[in-house]
């Protein structure tokens, strides 16, 4: 796997770990989940900061090791496009499901978590499909 693909996989895995922690609290496996709007926005801020921090740390480590920023070559750009072709429909389906359940008696926090889950599943499907086509060379 090239440096660029390793960076992409690492950043996405970091994002999934942070989301995993969030949903672990939501389902009561770990700590307490946000209950109010302000707590939820603080949690979103933590997720965003963790994501940005992981991206900055990864970029810094790669720069220190290789001396230049990793850029995708033509094959990696095609792989990224192909993963988008999977990730975008998954996200649409997830949002349609959330829209359907919006008419059920759900709390605002539950609806917000369902939207986050759709984003998370979409990213996960992109990573899985990306690794699958990398394994098959393309």
């Amino acid at each position: 796997m090239s440096t660029y693909m390793k960076v992409i996989v690492f950043i996405n895995l970091a994002l999934l770990i942070v989301f995993g922690w969030h949903f672990a609290t939501v389902f009561g496996f770990l700590g307490t989940a946000p209950q109010t709007q302000s707590e939820f926005f603080i949690r979103l801020g933590v997720i965003l900061i963790a994501y940005i921090a992981s991206a900055i740390i990864t970029a810094f480590m790669v720069l220190r090791k290789t001396g230049n920023a990793p850029l995708p070559d033509e094959r990696e750009e095609i792989i990224e496009l192909k993963t988008e072709r999977v990730g975008v429909p998954v996200l649409y389906i997830g949002l349609i499901v959330v829209a359907w359940y919006a008419f059920m008696p759900l709390t605002a926090i539950q609806t917000a978590n369902a939207i986050l889950a759709a984003v998370c599943v979409s990213e996960l499907s992109k990573i899985c499909y990306g690794l699958f086509i990398l394994k098959r060379a393309l």
């Binding site: 090239s2 660029y4 693909m5 033509e74 094959r75 990696e76 060379a137 393309l138």
Partner: peptide
Amino acid sequence: IGVTRQTIIAIEQGHYSPSLES
């Protein structure tokens, strides 16, 4: 030619057809 080693491997194995430029 401006691609990664992995892309050269994929070309040699016939898994990837390079762009006309490459």
